[in-house]
Amino acid sequence: MDKKITTQSIITFTKNNLIIVGIFILAIITSFVEPNFLTVGNLQNVMRQFGPLIMVSLGMTFIIMGGMIDLSVGGIISLVAVVTISLIDPIGQAAALMVGVTIGLICGLLNSFLILKGGALKQAEALFLTYGMSVVFTAVALIYTGAAPVFMSYSKTDFSIFTAIGEGFIGPASTSFIIFLVCLLILYIIESRTHIGRSICLTGGNMIAARLAGIPTEKTIIFIYAVSGVMAAIGAVVLASRVTIASPLMGKGYETQAILAVVVGGTALTGGKGSVLRTVIGTLLIILMSNCLNLLGVTTYIQYMLRGAILILAIWLDNRKQYSEGN
């Protein structure tokens, strides 16, 4: 690696990381146009939005590294949120939390069971199956609450844990940020220090070769979907605690945002390589972008549009890069 920064190296870097550079330019422009951008209040705001999405994205990273995809996380978030919040009164908050995370785990296991038993090991097949499961999970959430939102503040018993997750601080950092750091640490250790992490990468790189080499590919797929389900459940708890409401449609759109965050971070959709650390950067960039656009007065509709455009662009550019490396 050349230590000197030359114009040439800047151009190459920009070419390889077009989206990252684009978002940085956007942030710089915003900080000039809108003085509120660099205030403590706004940055705290960014961190708060960061909470739920990063959990889902971290789980999605393992899925995509393993060469699969999970569109059911939106449904899982909705289901876990309504069940957890509604159970605070009858069984107490700690038990409700456990139940919520268990539901996420069960949903993830259900996904992996369907995928393995059905042999839906191609990404496209897994996409459709989990898309269908998302409809099922959302429908269960809708039936469970009768389509009405569940308000945390109506709970008669103590809900201090949820308030702490939603608004509390441990030292200078918010509780949700601490939860994020713990999750990140655990997932990073699994990814870089254990054989499970290697198995995920090998399974994503070439499933048949991995199986022939003795990698337990089926167990790996069960593991990544279970992680994705649990992380979606944690995301749901963080989200519901922050907004103090659980609605049966609140998870909608999180699946595409999570995929976007993972892909923008630089984890290849084709599987086999990537890192949860990259996803942290990707998620930060996505949140930063929407924060900048909000401050600049761009409508949510155009932001939605941009999200689709960036997803397409990111995958296209990544594909081109891989082809040029291959040749």
């Binding site: 549009m305 999200r307 689709g308 455009a309 997803l311 397409i312």
Partner: peptide, 8 residues
Amino acid sequence: GMGVLLTG
């Protein structure tokens, strides 16, 4: 992605 874009 195109679907998301067009919905926007």
